[in-house]
Design a protein around this nucleic acid. Sequence first.
DNA 1: CGCCGAATTGATCTGATTCAAGTGCGGTGG
DNA 2: CCACCGCACTTGAATCAGATCAATTCGGCG
Lengths: 260, 260
Amino acid sequence: MQVAAACEPRHDAPRASRAVPIHVMPRGAAPRHATPRCSACAMRQICMPPELTPDQLAQLDEVICSTRSIKRGEALYRAADPFQSIYAIRAGSFKTVVMHRDGREHVTGFQIAGDTLGLDGICGGKQNCDAIALEDSVVCIIPFTQLEAICREMKPMQHHIYQMMSSEIVRESSQMMLLGTMSAEQRVATFLLNLSKRFKARGFSGAEFHLRMTREEIGCFLGMKLETVSRMFSKFQRERLVQANGKTIRIEDAEGLGRV
Amino acid sequence: MQVAAACEPRHDAPRASRAVPIHVMPRGAAPRHATPRCSACAMRQICMPPELTPDQLAQLDEVICSTRSIKRGEALYRAADPFQSIYAIRAGSFKTVVMHRDGREHVTGFQIAGDTLGLDGICGGKQNCDAIALEDSVVCIIPFTQLEAICREMKPMQHHIYQMMSSEIVRESSQMMLLGTMSAEQRVATFLLNLSKRFKARGFSGAEFHLRMTREEIGCFLGMKLETVSRMFSKFQRERLVQANGKTIRIEDAEGLGRV
DNA sequence: CGCCGAATTGATCTGATTCAAGTGCGGTGG
DNA sequence: CCACCGCACTTGAATCAGATCAATTCGGCG
């Protein structure tokens, strides 16, 4: 299945790339690049604990010293790939897809800048899903063994990783509740509000944004068919809750959406 | 809602309680008891990393020094309780239930002896679900702050916690796939096979076992109504895949169940 | 300009829910 | 010891939400 996501980013909010001295340190594989440091990264508040000292940040910079660019539709990793690193999204967005042996696919999440990828690979030593870029994206590579070492020395960092993993468990619990108990209408409303909240938390507009994924991918995430997703969008539009124009979404009445 | 689980355990497989010198050390709250040590626990292979030295086990015994008994239908913890410890189930079983603000309930998992409870409470510092005993049960209390300290010193233990959390993420991903893509029939089949596998891994029979939860709870876990669960049991019975007699389940044709 | 995949919309079908009427079993009290 | 009660479970019939099938329309791109 090819990935859609035709729209270009339109936000002028925090981008990951910065005018920062680049620490050149290529490491083998082609699509890896040297990268600006955590200590200077605009996403730091989101992917790292807030209370790190400059000293500790320097330690981090030692370990998280390369990034990787992934083109739209390409995989950052695939299920069964050996697990070595987790990834922090610097720019762009991804979907994670699990596949059943019978070919059935399910999208387990959409990740945007500041989110983390790969935590599910720790167990079993290999990736458990495909992570596919929804647009051209850049991730920071965080070698897990080295991260573990850091966590043994740096309490806030240790705690932060537990927090991240626990949050992911909680997020998935909510998604299970959504899939298990909500109507199609409620699922789509919840999905839009959740996206809105996350964009807002990252300095983008929470009221108007671009979907980087197709209706089919949304449906696959929400446990329904793309036609149903489309119908719900139309319904919300009729009810003046959202303005949906292809991939551009404008939330007109967040209150109302929440009450659905 | 009252919990059912009328049947008594009938297995003579590994039980948690053992004739081991009891390290008496009451700690405040009434329903806590001193407890046999990890170093002597039959569940250790399941809830702890295998490669611990006797020395390291002794350290664990220092920290995991109390248990708690929970009667059928009672809560080990409830959503919004302050998070302090995680729990390892020594004997018995639980369900974890998340509740939406509108009162909608969803069962996120069933846990049996050897499983861990409370990992989702780490983030936000408070519990995110109710953990309700499906039968009279006993858990080991693992104070999380102390566990974190141990993990900073004990590499295998540190890794083990990451593994456990990652496994939980993977388990929930599979459950999302189940909820998002499978028919009622497939969900129930998957549920039975999964339970079977887990019982087997703990030394119980994988072919015949007792459900400790009601049809309603199963339905709430699988995203369907109790009537549908019941119908699927009847269907499998007609097809000679399982023998379902109230809460007693005998799997006649695991192969066939898997093919559903 | 024309093509192709994505999205919308309508008509129909179906698996699961809902509603309703039993059945079976364990526990209680006479 | 048995009759009765309550609760979980089963089963059938009617209904409905969402899936499926099908026909356009839209929109980005070569």
